[in-house]
Design a protein around this nucleic acid. Structure first.
Lengths: 245, 245
DNA sequence: GTTGGGATGTGTACGGCGTATCTAGATGCG
DNA sequence: CGCATCTAGATACGCCGTACACATCCCAAC
């Protein structure tokens, strides 16, 4: 067995992806999980998630199209490597101990990370949990919520609530930014002036009066940071109030 | 012009997708946006998002592979139709008037919808905002927040905070459900017993003590509804407190 | 020193995808 | 009737993921 079918067919080794990722790179191998993941992230950062193809990676790595399959089982493993790589960028300062500060820092770092790597929202959502780096982040949050008299369910609920908010808010922010940029507008104002035809049509139906009033009267329409941070404080307030911490 | 290049090349008409969607179906056409969207949703519900290909749709519609391009510009339009179709399922009861009830109903309906159509989380995130049905939902929320003395920015912030939480929480719930099912487990307990090799490895590293304690001591580990609803109440509490409503 | 086997990368090929472009038939209008 | 217009079909191109068989290289055992 061990990554080798009886007839000599090539395959990825037996050990789990994460175990292999932590092992030192094989001595006489031009490829490694580290290198594959790094290049995948580079390509995605530069040209978008869709540009990350096995063939493109092979070109970038200076290797034949099928070479990477010795190391990853396919695109699933590849995506997992990408998720792990960006998760490892999270560095919540050690000094922070108060639960609210830790959870806030986590949410702010998540947004920064997703603005830096806008393709992250296109990864399968399960990778937001099931990666060593993501689990380390969760562990840090849970530890910060420990010793406050909460039961395990409440601790997990608090963490997951913040995490859900952060993921949802950051991905919609990124999606809207990508969309306005893809339409060739560079500011919120421009966006609203040269509205895409479909938006103009929708607004002109007059079905969205409150929404239109927001468009005319809002003073912070383009301040995504304010929106994100204010929403985050609400979420933290609510957790504190409901859990009595 | 008008959907026709000078040399007779076929193309989708000029009017926006949404305008065409509302028009009555063309008299002598076997295809319509309605029918295309309906079939796309059916295929996605039955076999997953990846099964929705232009060719598969053509087969399902009893039509040549390129026929649908007369009506949609490509997969982008198709996805927009799918998003609009599931958005139209949201029916927030007319009787609800209190802001908190309206926002709560919206969040609960969002979760139900995503559990019913697990592929929704794989749509481009921008479609969670920029569709007529999604805008109608937003309008309803904003209207419920109107007249409480909030300024436009606060109203939008409240709505977006709930919407971000709902989207994030529901998509991670769906992703985890899909993942455990794809591994062939049918309950949370089974999931934890026959843990995937990669998870066993991670847990065995001993790096996640608090997480492991949660695994051992949690009493609501498999109660996704409790988790979602409790988190939602936190979010609503926080909004109420911060905005003084 | 030779040899054999596992690890590593290569070459070739298949079936499916999105979609550009051309062609053909039906329909309504002068 | 004749013609523009709308609709769908046919064909084809260049990508994609990846299965599979093969070549190479290095180390270990003899």
């Amino acid at each position: 067995m061990a990554g080798q079918k009886k007839d000599g067919k090539a395959a990825v080794p037996d050990k789990s992806l994460w175990e292999r990722l932590e092992q030192p790179a094989a001595p006489r191998a031009s490829l490694s999980l580290e290198r594959i993941g790094a290049v995948a992230v580079e390509v995605a950062d530069a040209e978008g998630f869709a540009a990350v193809t096995m063939r493109r990676l092979a070109t970038e790595l200076g290797v034949a199209p099928m070479a990477a399959y010795r190391h990853v089982s396919g695109k699933d493993d590849l995506w997992a490597l990408m998720a792990e790589r960006v998760a490892a960028e999270h560095r919540i300062p050690e000094e922070l101990t108060e639960w609210r500060e830790v959870l806030r820092a986590f949410a702010l770092l998540t947004r920064d990370m997703m603005l830096r790597h806008p393709w992250v929202g296109q990864l399968p959502t399960a990778l937001f949990v099931l990666t060593p780096g993501r689990m380390a982040i969760a562990e840090r949050q849970l530890a910060a919520l420990d010793g406050l008299g909460l039961d395990e369910d409440a601790m997990m609920m608090a963490f997951r609530t913040v995490s859900s908010y952060a993921h949802g808010a950051a991905s919609s922010e990124v999606a809207l930014r990508d969309w306005t940029e893809s339409e060739g507008w560079s500011s919120g104002a421009e966006t609203r002036m040269g509205l895409a035809p479909q938006m103009t049509y929708l607004m002109d139906t007059g079905r969205y009066p409150t929404y239109q009033r927001y468009g005319r009267r809002s003073r912070r329409k383009d301040d995504a940071t304010w929106m994100y941070e204010t929403g985050l404080e609400c979420v933290l307030d609510g957790i504190a109030a409901r859990l009595g911490i």
